[in-house]
Design a binder for these strands. Structure first.
Length: 259
DNA sequence: ATGGTTGGGTTCCAA
């Protein structure tokens, strides 16, 4: 089972590039972030015609997550528990029925800038809620993948220029500690485990020629429960996608599980 | 050196 995460930065803007990548990469499951669309406006037929089941959790203008799956889905749930007043669409879960059942969550973690401030407070509160949900899901002791745009640079080697990110919400000590508190529940960062070599990034800003200078950061992650890590066969980052026409500022990151 | 670019909305915000 190949599971990919991809922040597409707008489904309307990626309506040509996304099907091209799906056809060549052939993920069984694609977890999308920043669809920037309400559910009713998501062009689901394009993906259904390619053989995908489509589940969206959208909102107007910003945020929004979705799951595309060639395998059957069940028990789909939308929204991160823990705050009934939170209206931002950043979390979706489903169980994927492959040779083994795998629970997946697609997430778009708040950016948090500027820090300090209310947006940073929201980021940290959201991460505390995510940790609680992750702990609940781990208790099932089944294969579980939490994948998406974490808006977290976990370590200095995950940035080409870590000095440029000092003071940014993606790299502040509080943000990285909150990420470690989730990791320390027992997750494996798939890319860190299999590809510890430096220079593997998943995001390059549109500005200042970041892609041409390889001034990137690794902020899109797939976290595996122990039961999912047991099944890890391969993983990678499709960096070449960033160099194509009309790219997102993120690229797909994926794992292959024996499931 | 605090630049510049994209997307989705609307005359600006988020990233």
């Amino acid at each position: 089972m190949k599971i990919a995460t991809f922040n597409i930065n707008g489904i309307k803007a990626r309506i040509e590039a996304l099907p091209v990548w799906l056809a060549e990469a052939r993920p069984d499951v694609a977890l999308l972030q920043e669809i920037k669309s309400v559910d009713e406006a998501f062009p689901r037929e394009i993906f259904e015609d390619m053989g995908f089941a489509v589940e969206t959790h959208g909102q107007k203008g910003f945020n929004g997550v979705a799951i595309l799956s060639r395998l059957p889905l069940e028990d789909v749930s939308r929204g991160l528990p823990g705050d009934a007043t939170d209206e931002q669409a950043r979390w979706i879960e489903a169980t994927v029925l492959g040779r083994r059942a795998v629970r997946v969550a697609g997430l778009y973690l708040p950016n948090g800038n500027p820090a300090p401030g209310p947006k940073f407070d929201y980021k940290l509160a959201w991460m505390a809620r995510m940790r609680a949900r992750a702990a609940d899901l781990l208790a099932a002791e089944l294969p579980l993948v939490l994948a998406g745009d974490y808006n977290i640079i976990p370590q200095p080697e995950d940035a080409a220029r870590p000095d440029a990110w000092v003071g940014d919400a993606l790299f502040l000590p509080e943000s990285r500690a909150a990420f470690r508190r989730i990791m320390n529940l027992g997750f494996t960062d798939a890319i860190r485990a299999r590809h510890p070599e430096p220079g593997l990034y998943s995001f390059w800003d549109y500005q200042a020629g970041a892609w041409d200078r390889n001034n990137g950061i690794r902020i899109d992650h797939l976290l595996l429960s122990p039961q999912a890590a047991d099944l890890l066969a391969d993983c990678g980052i499709d960096q070449d996608v960033r160099g194509r026409d009309k790219p997102s500022d993120h690229v797909p990151v994926w794992v292959e599980l024996d499931a």
